[in-house]
Every structure is written in C-alpha cells, then in structure tokens.
C-alpha cells in the first residue's frame, strides 16, 4: 500500500528525484572558497594600490601591469609544462603579481618585474607542486632573486630618480635618508605615505585600512600582524629609549618602511605561515623581530623580505612546536 503511494508521489512529477549517498557532513559553507580568500586579498589591496597610483603615478601603473601580466603568463606556462589544468581561477597568481609589484621600487627597469614574476611563480611556487605546497612566499622569492641579480636596481639608489616628474621619486627613501644623514621624515608623511619607497609600502594608513579588512574577513589571520607589530613596538621602543636624541621614534619604525605592508599582506600568506593561532603569533613575532634587527644593525634599511623568508623556513618547525592541546588533554 505504501509503495503505491510513494510511486504516485514521485511519478506525478518528472523527472523523478535521483538520490545519492555520501558520508557526512552533507552541508558545506558554500560562500567560502580558496578563490574567495584570494579575492579578499585583492580587495584588501585596493587602498594600497590606490595610494601607490596616487603617489607614484605612471611608475605604479607600469610595475603593476608588468608584474600582474608576467605572473599570470608564468602561472599558465608552468601549469602547461606540468600538464595541469589552468589554475588561474584560484586568483593566487594575481595576488602574487600585485604584491610583487607593490614591493618593487618605481623606477626599476621593466625586466626586473618580468624576471621576478617568473622566479616567483616558477621557483617560488610551481617547482614545489603549486598552490599550497610552497614553503616560501612566492612574491618574496621573486623579489629576493632580482635583489641579488640586479643589486643596483633594488639598492637604496634604485628608488631615486632625481630627474623624475613624480615628487616622491626624486627623494631618497625615509629609512635611507635617516641612515645616511640622520634626518627624520615627518610622522604624518610616513603615515599618509607621501614619501619614496617600494610602491605599496609608503602609506601606513592604506595598509591599515586594507589589512584590517582582511583580518575582519579572516582572510588574513590577525595573530600574524599582531605579532609583527608587537615585536616592532617592543624592539623599536627599546631602541628609542637607548637613543632618545635620534628623533626616529618607535612610531617611525612602525609607519616607516614596509613593516605594515609586510605584516598585513606578505607575512599573512597562509601557505607559508603556521597553522595554529599560537604558531601564527610566534611567526609574526619572528618577522617583526628580524625586521627590527636588520633595520637597526644591518646595511639593508628595509628587511621585511628577508625576515619573511627566514620565518617561512621556520614555519614547519613552528607547526611542530605548537601542536595545540586538545580539549581535555592532560
């Protein structure tokens, strides 16, 4: 009797339902995908890109176009070489391209961006096995390569072009000026970003706006920038106390150079940073610590790139140290 009724119920409409089985859970948060996380990073970068375009004009347009196009081409090329499907839809190459461009000096010649992009995607990511398998932040691998290969283009002098029509580019970078002459840039200029530097790093304000968006969306883990900023505050504070006359205060350390850009957009790359909240904070502390060490004691005025790469190499170890204690474990 019952079978007849269900037949009626199912046959009265066409097509009959196709039932399939699968292990639980049967629901998934469909709004959350890798692509969405990468798009969040792009959205978070909008204020930074806007500020770069405003301050550096055509320099920024040029570097962004070169790096984005090169990264996408490199991604397609390496995927083809590995016999993989075109992975462009996850948008990670787009993110790498933007971050790489924003970490370069405006006047750097075009081939610097192209080569950095191919190294970033090829050596930074593809040879490890593609997205998720890379140990180092791809954009920083590319930048490190060109920094060594084209030392002059990325040295302090590479940032400056005295004949440029763009104001910011005619000056030396604030950190370099301070290192050479002891002259201190006004805090407001550092905060707003009206100084010379890598394209994305100059405006602390833009980095904060985009970065806070990323943290609220949880597409970047807040523990990492929190760690970086804490380390910079403590070490910068100590340096500040040790040399009260220098005028380069702890706030200059925080808003100057690429510290905030690195804290929110570079160090937060999920693939190359630890998994657990505690691990992420330790990673952030390490990045901030190394940045301050390099700033205070080395010839490189800005050390975010080296700090991130160094901590990337420690990530597997940090993961091992920070296996969380499960609920109820002794």
């Amino acid at each position: 009797m019952t079978e007849q009724t269900i037949d009626k119920a199912t046959l009265s409409e066409t097509p009959a339902p196709v039932i399939h089985v699968s292990p639980s859970p049967h629901l998934a948060d469909q709004s959350l995908t890798t692509q969405r996380i990468m798009l969040d990073v792009v959205i978070g970068l909008i204020p930074v890109v806007a500020m770069a375009l405003f301050v550096f004009r055509l320099y920024a347009v040029k570097q962004l176009a070169i790096s984005i196009v090169s990264c996408l081409v490199a991604e397609a090329l390496f995927a083809k070489m590995r016999g993989r499907e075109l992975p462009l839809k996850d948008c990670s190459a787009l993110v790498t391209g933007i971050i790489l461009a924003l970490s370069l000096p405006g006047p750097a010649p075009w081939y610097v961006g192209v080569i950095a992009s191919f190294v970033a995607i090829g050596i930074g990511k593809a040879i490890f096995g593609g997205i998720g398998m890379n140990i180092f932040n791809p954009a920083m691998v590319g930048r490190a390569f060109v920094m060594i290969a084209f030392a002059s283009a990325l040295a302090a002098s590479g940032y400056q072009d005295v004949n440029s029509s763009v104001d910011a580019v005619t000056q030396a970078t604030p950190l370099d000026t301070f290192k050479q002459t002891g002259a201190v840039a006004p805090l407001s200029a550092l905060f707003l970003g009206l100084t010379n530097g890598s394209l994305g790093e100059t405006s602390a304000l833009a980095c904060l706006i985009g970065g806070i968006y990323l943290c609220i969306r949880r597409s970047a883990s807040w523990e990492i920038p929190a760690g970086v900023i804490s380390a910079a505050l403590v070490l910068g504070g100590i340096a500040n106390l040790a040399d009260m006359d220098s005028g380069w205060t702890v706030l200059h350390h925080l808003f100057g150079g690429s510290l905030l850009f690195g804290a929110f957009f570079i160090a937060t790359d999920p693939c190359s940073s630890p998994l657990t909240p505690r691990g992420k904070f330790i990673f952030g502390l390490g990045v901030g610590g190394f940045v301050m060490l390099l700033r205070l004691f080395s010839g490189y005025p800005a050390g975010v790139m080296f700090a991130v790469l160094l901590m990337n190499s420690l990530t597997p170890l940090i993961n091992r140290w920070t296996i969380p204690r499960p609920l109820g474990a002794q």
Partner: peptide
C-alpha cells in the same frame, strides 16, 4: 510517504541531521 513523498529536486535522504547523519 505520510509526509507527501519526495520533491523532484530531492537529492539526498539522511537519517538524522545533515552534519552527522547517514545518507
């Protein structure tokens, strides 16, 4: 059957709830 049967768009029948139930 007592609840009117399945709709055409039914795709999975789960004993229990969707998070831990058995299809």
């Amino acid at each position: 059957d007592f609840c009117g049967g399945l709709k055409p768009e039914a795709a999975r029948i789960v004993s229990g709830g969707p998070m831990m139930g058995f299809a």
